[in-house]
Computed example of a mutant assay.
Amino acid sequence: MKHFFKSVVLCKYYLMGVVALAAITLQSCSSTSDEKVLYFAHSLPTSHPVHKGILAMQEALKENSGGKLQIKIFPDGQLGSEREAIELLQIGSIAMTKVSASALSNFAPEYQIMVIPYLFRDSDHLFRNLEGEVGKQLLESGTEYLLRGICFYDAGARSFYTKDKPVNSPDDLDGLKLRVQNDQMSVDMANTLGASATPMAFGELYTALQQNVVDGAENNIPSFVSSNHFEVCKYYIFDEHTRVPDVVVIGTKFWDSLSDEEKGWLEEAAEESVVKQKQYWHETVEENMKMLKEEGVEFIYPDQEPFIEKSRPIMERLMQNPKLKPMIEKINSN
């Protein structure tokens, strides 16, 4: 059995190496002496508003640079899962990716604050901080882990959804096995609120719901729809426990290879895409809400105060971290 698991691990890294080599070959073959192409991999479908934001960045960068610096996008997990894309970024096999801020907490501890329940009061409060000093500090915090943030994309509020049981208070979460993202903060969040946190890959969740491995999950409305989880889960609970943005990240290897002018083109394109992506997100949520009602999904709007009170220990614990405390205080006072 020991040799079996060793073989599985070796096989995984062999396959990752093949993917990495393919990506490197693609990247080197796609560039000419007067043109640079940055390979951008992510795991979302092309219908998702975040992918549309990336397309806006791609278009703006091509225009800003006169075609000298371009982005080629690999959506739908073509080069691996979210975590695998981060690892490919770190070893320099691809240039850019899009990841949830919670996933980055496994690499850059400062991102833990993004998964503190109810830290951000609403979307305006979130982006007021992300587009200010706190956001700048976060984007730069991953540099020592070879990951440099470029910008934040709107990913709405994350809420619970369940198959068979409506949830009107934290007490209703007791005994429910709920899928969460594979990071410690997300696990702590669900467990503290009373559920039984079950980390697993997002791509495995639909089958897990069908087979009663889990009773539900938590995510934003567009992901609930694009994953087709609404076909299995008929209760969507707007407890809005976290507002976790997506982060566009570039590997420091590629960032350091860009000239100041090229960095300026990329940052300008990112800023332009953020404005458009927020609009795409808003439009998508409106369309999705209408469709979900037609599909028979019941929306529940619980009193959030009991959820806020029950989750408070998470913020209190992180306030003991001298590195995170100033950031949390700044957000709370903003």
Rank of each mutant, 00 (worst) to 15 (best):
M185Y: 03
A195E: 00
I86H: 05
V225T: 06
L61A: 04
S123G: 11
F160V: 05
L324W: 12
L119Q: 07
C151R: 04
E131S: 13
T162Y: 00
I86W: 00
T252V: 12
D188Q: 04
K253M: 12
N220P: 00
N321K: 13
V187F: 01
G135E: 02
G80H: 03
S100N: 11
F299Q: 04
S311M: 06
T198L: 03
S47R: 15
S7H: 09
N321F: 02
F299M: 10
L292P: 12
M16K: 01
V275A: 15
G175Q: 03
F40M: 10
T284E: 11
S196G: 00
P322Q: 13
Q90L: 05
A208D: 00
F152C: 07
M185L: 06
S333A: 15
M315T: 14
F120H: 07
A20F: 02
F120S: 07
D303V: 09
F5K: 14
K276N: 08
P322H: 10
L130P: 12
L88T: 07
W265M: 12
G156M: 09
I71T: 06
V248P: 12
S30M: 15
I308K: 15
L193W: 01
T207E: 05
G296M: 05
L44T: 03
S47F: 05
Q70K: 15
V248Q: 06
L69I: 11
E35R: 14
S141N: 06
M57P: 01
M189D: 01
P302Q: 03
F230D: 04
Q112E: 13
I331F: 14
E82Q: 12
I73Y: 08
V187C: 01
W255H: 08
L147E: 06
I113V: 12
Q211P: 03
E309L: 10
D174S: 10
I116C: 05
H125L: 10
K62P: 05
G296K: 08
T32E: 14
A56Y: 10
G149L: 07
E218Y: 03
Y301K: 11
L55Y: 08
V275W: 08
G296V: 09
Q78D: 14
Y235P: 07
S273L: 09
A108E: 03
P166W: 00
P45M: 09
N212I: 01
I86G: 06
Q70Y: 03
L61M: 09
I94C: 08
L258K: 09
N220K: 01
G135H: 10
V214W: 01
V275T: 13
S102M: 03
L292M: 10
L176P: 01
F238S: 06
A201T: 02
V115D: 11
V50A: 11
T46P: 03
K253T: 07
L146M: 11
A201K: 08
S43Q: 07
E144T: 12
R317E: 15
V37D: 09
E298P: 02
P49E: 13
A101D: 09
I300Y: 06
C151A: 14
L10S: 15
I300Q: 05
E286I: 15
M289V: 15
S28N: 14
D183W: 02
L21V: 12
A60C: 09
N228D: 12
Q320W: 06
S186Y: 00
S105I: 05
S30F: 12
L10A: 15
F254G: 08
